[in-house]
């Protein structure tokens, strides 16, 4: 363990994992098939585990999760997007898990010392989990894209709708020594290849906008996020100082 905790980075990555885990938790009892109840909960749990490790590098995990207001959260806007239909959830998973695997792969490979040191251990463990998440998202992207006309249409719409939130993934995060441009081109190559195999076209809209580019990392979020936090934090906030 190094003495320096890369706070900004741990917070950004921890918030990503925390928020996406919460969204996936909303699926419990609503999945299209029982196997997906298991799979989505499994991914949500992995992400929650990552969030807990990362937030604990910064401070008290519960204080950070339950007592910050939305302007203090550093997650990318992609992960806070509402679940929508199963295609939206899968498109969000595809975009995010591909990013996570590429990023954690680099962090794990970077190894031991320096500022990233405390993240290396987490990344080494998490990269195995996110490889599984990515596989799950890719397999479903193929099935929905290359399934029926309806599923193709829904998957295509979902990929397009979430596209404008993907540019933010490659905004440099303070404390992470990563070649973000290279990460972005690897991400584009990987996602494009899957979409093509799934008979889907790579969306041609902008991947960043005046508002969404890098906004989440600065604490600027979309409207549904505040409501999500209200639900998540309400009980904890109702009993100040209580332990559970």
């Amino acid at each position: 363990m190094t003495a320096t905790v890369p706070t900004a980075a741990a917070l950004a990555l921890g918030d990503d994992a925390l928020v996406l885990s919460h969204r996936l938790g909303e699926w419990a009892g609503h999945a299209p098939v029982l196997e997906e109840e298991v799979a989505l909960a499994n991914i949500a749990l992995d992400l929650l585990g990552q969030a807990r490790v990362l937030l604990s590098l910064v401070g008290d995990e519960d204080e950070l999760a339950y007592l910050r207001e939305e302007r203090a959260f550093r997650n990318v806007q992609l992960v806070e997007q509402p679940n929508g239909d199963f295609a939206h959830t899968i498109a969000r998973q595809l975009y995010f898990s591909t990013y996570q695997r590429l990023l954690y792969g680099r962090l794990a490979a970077a190894g031991g010392d320096g500022e990233g040191g405390t993240l290396t251990g987490l990344a080494g463990k998490a990269v195995k989990e996110v490889a599984y998440h990515q596989d799950h998202a890719e397999q479903w992207t193929l099935r929905l894209g290359d399934g029926t006309a309806e599923s193709h249409e829904r998957m295509s719409r979902a990929c397009t709708a979430l596209w404008r939130f993907t540019g933010e993934l490659f905004q440099p995060v303070e404390g992470l020594d990563v070649d973000w441009r290279e990460l972005e081109s690897d991400w584009l190559a990987s996602v494009s290849a899957v979409l093509e195999r799934a008979t889907l076209t790579v969306p041609d809209g902008p991947r960043t906008g005046a508002w969404s580019a890098g906004a989440g990392r600065q604490g600027l979020h979309t409207e549904s996020f505040g409501r999500m936090l209200a639900e998540m934090q309400h009980l904890h906030r109702s009993h100040p100082g209580a332990s559970w």
């Binding site: 925390l18 919460h22 938790g25 909303e26 419990a28 009892g29 029982l34 196997e35 109840e37 298991v38 909960a41 499994n42 949500a44 749990l45 929650l48 585990g49 969030a51 807990r52 937030l55 995990e61 519960d62 999760a65 339950y66 639900e231 998540m232 309400h234 009980l235 904890h236 009993h239 209580a242 332990s243 559970w244």
Partner: peptide, 25 residues
Amino acid sequence: ITRAPSLRRKAILMAKVQDEAGHGL
């Protein structure tokens, strides 16, 4: 699940609900 008051309790509850789906299977 979405209102669990601590991250530890949330993880426990998610794991439990996941187990139940598994038991159903």
